[in-house]
Computed example of a mutant assay.
Amino acid sequence: MQAEKNVLIFDSGVGGLSVFKNIYAHLPHLNYIYLFDNEGYPYGELDSEVLLERVSRLVGKMVTEHNIDLVVIACNTASTIVLPRLRQELKIPVVGVVPAIKPAAMISTKAIGLIATPATINRHYTHNLIKEFAPQSKVHLLGSTRLVTMAEDKLRGNPVNCDELKEILSPLINQIDVAVLGCTHFPLLKYEMQGVLGKDVVLIDSGEAIAVRVSRLLNQNVIDSELTTSGYSIYSSATPWEGVALNLGLAEFGFNPVRTFPLPGV
């Protein structure tokens, strides 16, 4: 019997769990390792060169030690920077998460709101996506690091301050008909964002597309009821200062709480 594939999912925090959920739903039989670089969080505030070196070192270590078959960089900010280097350094597929501009442009008849970290908003990569896939669309750019923190705080059991959320999203209210969640943390706030932006605004992220991409690259059939679910391990670059957030995040997306394994030698 052929051994199951090993997939590494990488993010700076728990936001990548939203991508993990979509991939796991399609391919529950694979072996997963989730590495969150909490020591470097939040990535949106790191210098590009620092981020590039961190991700390259951590991902390379995990690929070597765990015989990884495919890497998913489940972070929009990191993906806009590190993909070319990782694809050059590694001999396995590397899948990144980029803002879902193309599908947004296909359904928008008014304007698109791209909600992401300031780093993602300011990248040439992001602006090139807009030029290529939404040249005829009006795109409002909104960058916020605070939304990342609010998403993580929500997982720690803290209520979302909807007044603050409304203030952050105010430039988009009544201005758009599609909102692109350009950070993997933001699906954690999807319910609250929908309430602020209005029920007629379509919110989209890249999770589903990433899951399909992974299945194709690994030549795996999409979900099969006869396949048994496999396990997953969670690693962090530092001992979590409030590890409960990770387990709450896992529970939020339908996973069982697990013990976190600090990554040695980083």
Rank of each mutant, 00 (worst) to 15 (best):
T184N: 01
N161G: 14
D163S: 13
I173E: 11
C162M: 14
G157L: 05
M150H: 04
N161K: 15
N158Y: 14
Q175P: 03
D153C: 01
P135I: 05
D177E: 10
A179C: 13
I168C: 05
M150K: 06
H140K: 14
T149M: 13
E152F: 03
N174H: 13
A151R: 00
L181R: 01
L169T: 08
T149F: 13
H185C: 10
T184Q: 02
Q175G: 02
V148L: 03
I176L: 13
N161E: 14
S170H: 08
E167C: 01
I173Q: 12
L165F: 11
K138H: 14
D153E: 15
V180H: 01
V139F: 02
G157K: 10
L141M: 14
L172V: 05
R156V: 05
D177L: 00
S170Y: 05
E167D: 15
C183Q: 00
K154Y: 10
P171Y: 08
T184P: 00
I173A: 06
L155T: 07
L165V: 11
I173K: 13
L172H: 03
P171S: 09
V160S: 06
L142A: 03
E167A: 11
L169F: 06
K138N: 15
E164K: 10
G182A: 11
K166Q: 15
K154F: 11
M150R: 04
L147Q: 00
V160L: 12
E164T: 07
D177S: 02
K138T: 14
L155M: 14
L172R: 04
A151T: 01
I176Q: 05
S170N: 09
Q175E: 15
N174Y: 10
P171K: 01
G143K: 07
G182C: 02
T145I: 09
S137I: 07
H185L: 09
T149E: 15
